[in-house]
Simulated scan of single mutants.
Amino acid sequence: MVDREQLRDWVRQQHAGQLIKYTDKPYFEHLEFVAEKAGNKALLAYEIGLCHDLFEETKISAGQLMIVLSGFGYGEAEVVHITDSVTELTDKFTKKVYPDLKKAERKRKEAERLAHISPDAQTVKYGDLIYNINWVLNYESTAKKEKYLRKKRALLNTMTKGDPGLRAEALKLLHQDVIIKII
């Protein structure tokens, strides 16, 4: 039998000591928000949402995640789906892997890549974007906010395969910011 609580506690432990930028809140709050937001919108989206930053923000590898998921009672197909989706959500165009590419080019290529990930991974990404857009609206300077939101509008215009309701929620957040700016 699957033990989601064990997975939740394990993910929390992996991110122990990490804080959400500009706050004293544990980073796990971001992961939990994404998991709950996407949770019933796609296959295993809760688990994917919890794990979506493991490969970027911890030293956990795909192989280690597979072992852990199996230990918590997930079947082989579930383990593969969760791990593959987390892999899809992990940045590929990093400075470490592409040191000769400028940041803008890496970000552009990453956005292009995200347009082609699976519908389930895109659904979780929408939840991630909803959290991040709200965070940016509350914590970033106006200049950084405008640049970020412009890029996320462009990204959401290309990411169309995930849950339409979550995508619409993310787009609405971006649209509200435009309305606020005009007024």
Rank of each mutant, 00 (worst) to 15 (best):
P164T: 13
E78P: 10
E36T: 13
A35C: 01
A45F: 02
M66H: 02
T123H: 02
K103V: 12
F33G: 03
K181G: 06
E5C: 00
Q6S: 14
T123Y: 02
S141H: 03
Y27E: 07
D163H: 15
E105F: 00
K145L: 07
W135F: 15
K152V: 15
G75S: 13
L31E: 03
D53L: 06
A170R: 08
K172C: 05
G165V: 15
K109G: 14
V86T: 05
A35K: 01
L166N: 08
N134A: 10
S118Q: 02
V124M: 03
L129Y: 14
L156D: 02
K92H: 08
T58P: 05
K95S: 13
T142C: 07
A16H: 14
L43H: 12
L171P: 01
I133F: 06
K144L: 11
M66W: 00
E36R: 15
P99G: 09
F72Y: 13
L174P: 13
K25Y: 07
L171T: 07
D163I: 08
R113T: 09
A62C: 05
K151E: 14
I180H: 09
L149Q: 10
P99I: 08
D120E: 15
L54I: 04
I179H: 09
E140W: 15
A35M: 01
Y98M: 05
E5W: 03
S85P: 13
D24M: 08
Y98T: 06
G73D: 01
G165K: 14
K25T: 08
L44R: 10
R150F: 11
F28H: 04
I60Q: 08
C51M: 03
P164F: 13
F55T: 00
A154N: 12
S70C: 04
A154Q: 15
F72V: 00
I67E: 15
K144S: 12
L166M: 12
E47A: 04
Q18G: 01
V2S: 00
S70Q: 13
I48P: 00
V86L: 06
A121W: 01
Y139C: 07
I182E: 09
G75M: 11
A104S: 15
E88R: 00
L7M: 10
G162I: 11
T94H: 08
E105A: 09
R167H: 12
G162E: 10
L89Y: 09
P26C: 04
G17D: 08
E56D: 14
Y46I: 01
S85D: 08
L31P: 00
A104P: 02
K37A: 08
E32Y: 07
I130E: 12
T123V: 03
K103S: 10
L43S: 11
E110K: 03
S85F: 11
K144E: 14
I179W: 10
I82R: 07
I60W: 05
L137R: 11
H30Q: 11
N132G: 05
K92C: 03
G162Y: 10
K37D: 01
R153K: 14
L19I: 13
V124E: 02
V68R: 15
L156M: 13
L166D: 11
F55A: 00
G127Q: 04
H116L: 12
T142M: 09
E112V: 09
V80T: 12
L44A: 04
L137N: 12
E47Q: 12
K41S: 15
D91C: 06
L114G: 00
W135S: 02
T83C: 03
L19D: 06
